[in-house]
């Protein structure tokens, strides 16, 4: 079976199981609406959902871009300077002991209910995986290449830029792939804590008004967006970073 056919089959199977659960369990629509109702709500509320989805997309992309850039720069700084490693690495590890979710209310307090607090949340949640994956790869340059560079009288900065960074790009790519999964989580948590726009906000709003079909419609859009983001990042990594 081709990949497209197996994906389609899995999707249809999932929808059938969902409908069977609703019908056989005789579940009321405010607990679990059937796929037919959710799809029709998705269509009838498409303008509303699109408006909120656009906000979430902007938050996720900004957070992803900034988080990847900060992670890239931090990993290079750590790899280049033993002093930075000695001082910053314990801080980085300690910062991971604080659950990022617990910071969401503080970020909302500091940065307000708008875009800033969600971007910051997405940035924070992806910063560590990107930094850590890229830094580990930077420290694992094959020793033969480094020795060749030394015999060629290379400067440490040029060895870093011409050999260690390109050799570590596959590690950066794995960090980015993780980031593509985490960034939407960060943005949604940010929206749950305090927002007036975005898919996370729409889901809370629909939940509060017992519009569970709308909530599921927003959830499906969110899942599709996250999948598309992951596929796009994966394709970009293959094409641009060769990894």
């Amino acid at each position: 079976m081709s990949r497209a056919a197996s994906l389609l089959g899995a999707g249809l199977l999932g929808l059938a199981a969902w409908q069977a659960l609703v019908t056989l369990g005789d579940l009321p629509r405010f607990i679990l609406p059937g796929p037919g109702l959710v799809l029709s709500t998705l269509w009838s509320s498409r303008a509303l959902i699109a408006e909120h989805a656009l906000v979430t997309i902007v938050e996720v992309l900004l957070g992803l871009g900034l988080g990847a850039a900060c992670g890239f720069a931090s990993a290079i700084l750590l790899a280049a300077s033993p002093l930075a490693r000695a001082l910053l690495r314990p801080m980085l590890v300690f910062s991971q002991a604080v659950p990022v979710f617990a910071l969401a209310p503080i970020l909302t307090l500091w940065l307000g209910y708008g875009l800033g607090s969600k971007v910051a949340m997405a940035l924070l949640i992806i910063y560590f995986p990107v930094t850590s994956a890229f830094f580990d790869a930077l420290m694992r340059t094959p020793p033969g290449w480094l020795e060749l560079a030394r015999v060629m009288n290379a400067t440490p900065a040029r060895t870093l830029w011409r050999i260690r960074v390109p050799a570590a790009l596959p590690g950066f790519a794995s960090g980015l792939r993780l980031a593509a999964v985490y960034a939407p989580i960060g943005a949604i948590i940010g929206e749950w804590v305090g927002a007036s726009r975005g898919l996370g906000y729409l889901m809370l709003l629909a939940n509060g008004r017992a519009k569970i079909d709308l909530m599921f419609a927003a959830l499906i859009v969110l899942a599709v967006l996250a999948l598309c983001l992951h596929a796009a990042i994966d394709a970009a990594c293959r094409r641009l970073l060769g990894a």
Binding site: L148, A149, M152, A154, T155, R158, T159, R162, I163
Partner: peptide, 8 residues
């Protein structure tokens, strides 16, 4: 040409 690049 790697050597030249590495030496600037």
């Amino acid at each position: 040409m790697l050597g030249a690049r590495l030496r600037g």
